[in-house]
């Protein structure tokens, strides 16, 4: 008897549960899952705004692998962006967190200053930096000129443009990771440091053997988030460089946007989008499986 009631109760509770999450799930299925499935279907067609579409099988994927040199350049640019952004972002965030974790005057002010860009609109941020890096009248080149140095055309130099975009992106997002690290640092029990000090461990040794292992869960989290974010970079590219000069800042999302909304090749754009999807998935799975190796107190 008690068995029957409890299963009934469980079932009722389950329905309440479903009911409570239904607004969220409904939104998720209507506006996220359904379009994703639809886009996956589109990637096997030549759907375009300009002509009626037809099923083309794996042609889009074949074209992507064998014919489209631009796709590979774009993929290379994206990985370049990620490879530049992630170490710089995490390193700077950690350094800032360590610095601002001290009990020094003005830390509250600096934390706010560094976090402010995170809540600023990315478009506004990118426009401001576009002016800062403008060739002649740009703030940076004006400063350089006052020192007697002729600044380069930052956004019109194929070698400089990607580093510029990386730096601008790091400054925008570093505050978020810094806050996560700050929280993690403050959770490290003081007794470990006390014990280490008694044992005569140096500051560096303490950092390596106590601080770093204790904040690895946060490091892992920020790494995954920053990596995924960096693969999806778009706004700052669209605003600051428009993919240029040439195609030197074409990144995957920008390329997808170009293909879909400029050339109206939605079918092919969907195929590229799915390559990005699987790339993110793959990298996340790899990281997830590696985490037990280096994330402290994780099973």
């Amino acid at each position: 008897m008690s068995n029957a009631t409890s299963s009934k109760l469980r079932r009722r509770n389950a329905w309440y549960g479903y009911l409570f999450i239904s607004p969220m799930m409904l939104g998720f299925f209507l506006f996220l899952a359904a379009p994703i499935v639809y886009a996956f279907g589109l990637s096997f067609t030549d759907y375009s705004l300009l002509h009626p579409s037809s099923f083309v099988g794996g042609d889009n994927y074949a074209r992507l692998v064998s014919e489209d040199a631009q796709f590979w350049r774009t993929l290379g640019n994206t990985l370049y962006f990620s490879a530049g952004l992630i170490p710089l972002n995490l390193g700077l965030a950690l350094a800032l967190a360590l610095l601002l974790n001290q009990k020094l005057p003005g830390t509250g002010f600096f934390r706010t200053v560094i976090f402010t860009p995170v809540v600023t609109s990315i478009v506004v941020w990118a426009i401001v930096w576009k002016y800062v890096f403008a060739t002649d009248a740009g703030l940076l080149n004006q400063i350089l000129a006052s020192l007697g140095i002729e600044g380069p055309a930052w956004l019109y130099d194929t070698a400089l443009v990607m580093p510029v975009v990386i730096v601008v992106s790091v400054l925008k997002k570093v505050g978020m990771n810094m806050v996560i690290f700050l929280a993690a640092l403050q959770d490290v029990p003081k007794m470990y440091y006390e014990a280490a000090t008694i044992d005569g461990a140096s500051r560096w040794r303490q950092f390596r053997s106590i601080t770093l292992p204790m904040i690895t869960p946060s490091l892992f989290l920020t790494l995954v988030i920053t990596l995924i974010g960096s693969l999806k970079v778009f706004s700052q590219i669209a605003v600051m460089t428009d993919g240029g000069p040439g195609t030197s800042t074409y990144v995957l999302v920008y390329y997808i946007y170009q293909l879909a909304y400029k050339v109206f090749d939605f079918g092919y754009a969907s195929a590229v989008a799915f390559v990005l999807f699987f790339l993110v998935l793959l990298l996340t799975v790899v990281q997830w499986n590696l985490r037990t190796r280096w994330v402290h107190h994780e099973q």
């Binding site: 002016y131 890096f133 403008a134 060739t135 002649d136 009248a137 740009g138 055309a153 930052w154 956004l155 019109y156 000069p245």
Partner: peptide
């Protein structure tokens, strides 16, 4: 002629 990416406008008198 201004260099690529320059944003100086006519209104500035430059």
């Amino acid at each position: 002629h201004p260099k690529p990416g320059d944003q100086t406008t006519f209104e500035t008198g430059k």
